[in-house]
Design a protein around this nucleic acid. Structure first.
Length: 299
DNA sequence: CGGTTATGTATAG
DNA sequence: TATACCTAACCGC
């Protein structure tokens, strides 16, 4: 259940702990047995994310494309070096569960544990392992196919090289409601249901406003806010969109912000808006639940 | 233990 | 718009 920030964290994790290493690749569950066999023993040369797509690149030019979908997840474990790189911050986060490794007395890494549950793919180096469960997509593609996939996607707020004007142009090109376009990965890549609701609220944007009617500066502000929010998500390992002054509990650090204080509107149906006190509303939009404040985000 | 829910997308009609 | 996909956490009984 990850948005773009989780995928970028995972890509960074792979790059830092597996790049340059020969990997044992297997599919304990069996559904990726053929692919695993082709990758087994290969050296990981790089890991990249664009939006919610993850690309693990191997020395033999093969690319493993993974999309976690609604309930996919990676879990990691390994030696201390591995742990240090993977567990900065909160101990447990959505889309990238980390297993605390029992290193009672600085024990030597003894290899991955027996797989638990439906592990589609397991990657293992001399220092650690990664298990993938429940992805929507897990397939081997070529570099050219990877490039084609990225070319179809909109700009990613987490890519420093992306062009804000590209987002503005794409969202304004259609009459589609802004709330729908933010979920369209061809308009902007990496935004999901939480960032959609929270960015619209922070920008005071009416979710049903047609993209074509979105002012230039409002569109640009939405983009800039998503750049800020999503980079913060990569750093913190969770989505926190509230300003400290708008939280009910005592001000705290990332790890200290309680779940119920992390968002303005997401999953707050019926609760008072943190800004104006109006009851937060919920409606279906694009087969997903949209949360908004009818006063702050009035038409 | 069973039902519900989820930060997603593809495909059918 | 509806449904399938396919996994685990959570909640109420």
């Amino acid at each position: 259940m990850p948005e773009g920030h989780s995928i970028h964290r995972i890509a960074r994790q792979f790059a830092s702990v597996f790049a340059g290493e020969a990997l044992r690749v297997s599919s304990p569950q069996g559904r990726f047995a053929a692919g695993a066999e082709r990758l087994d023993g290969g050296v990981l040369t790089g890991a990249r994310a664009h939006g919610k797509q993850l690309f693990l690149e191997f020395h033999n030019e093969l690319v493993l494309r993974v999309h976690l979908g609604l309930y996919g997840a990676w879990s990691f474990g390994g030696d201390s070096r591995f742990q240090g790189a993977s567990s900065i911050g909160a101990p447990r986060r959505i889309g990238e569960r980390e297993t605390a490794h029992d290193d009672g007395a600085a024990s030597v890494y003894a290899g991955p544990p027996p797989p638990v549950g439906a592990v589609r793919v397991r990657l293992a180096s001399a220092h650690g392992w990664a298990d993938l469960r429940g992805p929507t997509a897990c397939e081997l593609i070529t570099g050219a196919e990877r490039d084609a996939i990225i070319a179809k996607l909109g700009p990613d707020p987490l890519d420093p090289g992306s062009d804000p004007g590209e987002f503005v142009a794409r969202v304004q090109r259609k009459r589609t409601a802004v709330g729908l376009s933010l979920m369209n990965q061809e308009v902007i890549a990496g935004v999901g249901n939480v960032y959609r609701a929270e960015a619209l609220f922070r920008g005071r944007v009416y979710p049903w406003l047609p993209g074509a009617a979105l002012r230039d500066d409002d569109a640009a502000a939405l983009w800039e806010d998503l750049v800020f929010l999503m980079n913060d998500g990569v750093r913190a390992g969770r989505i926190i969109t509230t300003a400290p002054s708008h939280r009910e509990g005592p001000a705290g650090t990332d790890s200290g912000v309680p779940v119920e204080d992390a968002h303005y509107v997401y999953k707050r149906t019926g609760l008072a808006c943190r800004i104006c006190g109006t009851m937060v509303a919920m409606a279906e939009m694009g087969a997903r639940k949209l949360y908004w404040c009818p006063s702050c985000q009035a038409a």
